[in-house]
Design a binder for these strands. Structure first.
Lengths: 253, 253
DNA sequence: ATAAACTATGCCGTTACGTTAGAGTCAATA
DNA sequence: TATTGACTCTAACGTAACGGCATAGTTTAT
């Protein structure tokens, strides 16, 4: 049985031009040619084509594929090993590049975020304060004046405007960093690391942010529309993503 | 301060031709041109070049870089995000390809083993013969001429070269089959089945391979460095694995 | 002054085809 | 049977990002 170009092309999923090309460079000359000059491919040719496409898929050049297929099994393993190393290097480079891109996105977001600072500034900390107060109120109700409450009072009382700005900036950076990694999923190590830093940030600057409080803060991000709106403004869906990530973080403690 | 092509090239680490090219496509036209037609780059041009190289490093095309750099910060983030997704896809594809290559290497290793037949052929059977002789000598010493010994003599005497080749091929297939299942552990049913076939193979073609002889053969694989070296050449650790498997096999009889 | 070092433009080559363009072929239909 | 539509052929240009070479002019150092 023999097949014409388009038949082969349709069967295997390549273009007619590709077959022409493979013929031209001597990679896959058809077994026979019709009186009218049509290329006629045999089943063997089809197999060879499959091989070619396989090696191509693996990233080999056509010339390399030709060499590998023509030489009977001799250099194949070595070639593949060498190629594998190339691929791994490529992958490593890609990973580095991806991080670089992420960082760049972060910095761009950071810059934009800084412009929105007034708004975010005004909102976020007051929100956190409010959450703290609410929680503290409950806590107070339960336990009287908690340490956390007093601690926060002491800490925040002394903050200057510059302090606030610096603290805000750090917070913003964390937010945007997490936003840029949203597609990695909430359980991603880098995301979790950022979440951890977020808790530390709150602890350092406001009050001892226990896992319970932190979990509650995550819920607040979704339940309080003011939080949600403001956070999602950084990136849509960030609020609920944060909640999830924070829950996962707390679960693991 | 202005710089000529080679100065810039050396500073930044690109070729002169590249700078020509970037000028040609309007990506980085030098700030000024000397009376003689020399390209004169400014410090600003250098910065721009750095940007270009950065985006290039990230895998953007020159055209894309041009667009990104020219448009003031507006689309940048989006472009970066889109690009990041591309990169992640690329990475995933690479990972798949790497496993495919690994698999192919493995399968070729199996095949290649077959090609090494001559070497293995020459060694393995002479070794088995020797083991047999040694064992038979002991046996003879103990029991006089054993059946097994005579049997082997009769059998092997008639073998033609083709017979040997066929027998070798079978043996090799068993070895490689076992090698490919090493990670299952020596007591794995499939491994044990192959071991059983290995004993049968010896019995069929050489001499009645009693459990005692078979066990001794297993020890030989580890104790005789010529065996060990040759077997481990199929796959490192195969010799001792075989011994273990053969012992387990014999224990169960 | 002369050579060495540098610069310019222009064009071909690379990879793996895509994309016309012009012309011939085959099978089925009007 | 003639025509149409689907298919085929070769030939040639275009792509991305330069590398490399040729030829010719310029600058710089000795």
């Amino acid at each position: 049985m023999s097949y014409k170009v388009k038949e082969v092309a349709d069967m295997v999923g390549v273009s007619v031009r590709t077959l022409h090309h493979y013929d031209q460079i001597g990679l896959l000359p058809p077994e026979s040619i019709s009186p009218a000059g049509y290329r006629l491919y045999s089943d063997q040719d089809l197999e060879r084509l499959q091989q070619i496409l396989f090696f191509k898929e693996l990233g080999f050049s056509l010339q390399e594929s030709k060499d590998i297929i023509n030489k009977p099994g001799f250099d194949r393993k070595e070639a593949l090993s060498a190629h594998k190393n190339l691929l791994i290097e490529k992958k490593n480079r890609l990973e580095k590049i991806i991080s670089a891109v992420e960082q760049t996105i972060e910095s761009i977001e950071g810059v934009r975020q800084m412009d929105k600072k007034e708004m975010f500034e005004a909102f976020d900390m007051s929100m956190i304060e409010r959450h703290k107060e609410k929680y503290a109120a409950e806590a107070e109700y339960k336990y009287g004046h908690t340490d956390a409450y007093q601690e926060s009072e002491k800490k925040t009382a002394r903050y200057s405007k510059e302090d606030w700005t610096a603290i805000m900036k750090q917070g913003n950076e964390l937010y945007t960093r997490i936003a840029s990694k949203m597609d990695r999923g909430p359980e991603d190590p880098q995301v979790q690391e950022a979440v951890s830093q977020w808790r530390q940030h709150i602890t350092d600057n406001f009050y001892n942010c226990t896992p319970e409080i932190f979990r509650g803060l995550g819920d607040l991000y979704v339940n309080d529309e003011r939080f949600t709106a403001n956070i999602d403004q950084i990136k849509p869906g960030l609020a609920s993503f944060l909640r999830e990530a924070m829950h996962i973080y707390c679960d693991k403690l």
